[in-house]
Design a protein around this nucleic acid. Sequence first.
DNA 1: CACATATATGAACATATGCTCATATATATG
DNA 2: CATATATATGAGCATATGTTCATATATGTG
Lengths: 101, 101
Amino acid sequence: MKQQDHLFLSAQTVDEASRIFKALGDPTRIKILYLLSQEECSVSHITEVLDMTQSAVSHQLSLLRKLRLVKYRREGTTLYYTYDDEHVITVLNQVLTHIKC
Amino acid sequence: MKQQDHLFLSAQTVDEASRIFKALGDPTRIKILYLLSQEECSVSHITEVLDMTQSAVSHQLSLLRKLRLVKYRREGTTLYYTYDDEHVITVLNQVLTHIKC
DNA sequence: CACATATATGAACATATGCTCATATATATG
DNA sequence: CATATATATGAGCATATGTTCATATATGTG
């Protein structure tokens, strides 16, 4: 195939895809998203389940928020996070299932 | 949910998944894998189409090889690369399609 | 308002990443 | 063997990433 005959991806599409995959390309964020795929979670719950510092979890949630992969609601002083991108959760679960097989 | 009631992912599963996603989490590698999803390519062809240095492409191919996402056959001095993980290509195309919509 | 609890955030730091540049390796050909 | 072509690889470097530590912010309660 000649260069001009390729089905090109726009730079925008490639960047968007790589941002999504980069978000999934870290063990901590995979664990967080997997947790959120099962249930709404407070920050302290995530912190306990993953056995990490509150700060580390909060930083990762901040990153996932920027990418609009998660959102939260407040109840008093507690913030409850949920996932905010069904498709990303589907992709994550597909890959996890594939690996476990 | 209590900590012990979660469906846990093994550390191995999480690490394997994050390695795959990390591989896809770079624009250059997305472009390479997308190219290879369309046709077998020589290194020089990839280099031309992506307009990158031969060294940069070769380093990325080396990384993709380590992860067994691509393989190659030799014909004289030319190496022809193909993808080596159907599932990863499927996931890539799913995400690309989803973004383009 | 004072204090407690839950969470967020900024700085700092160690490590990972992706590229360039120079050079090595492998194959083909005369 | 000498030379050319295609590709791989190591070192170096700038930037990105993920965590910790200290501290800020937000809400609730007495």
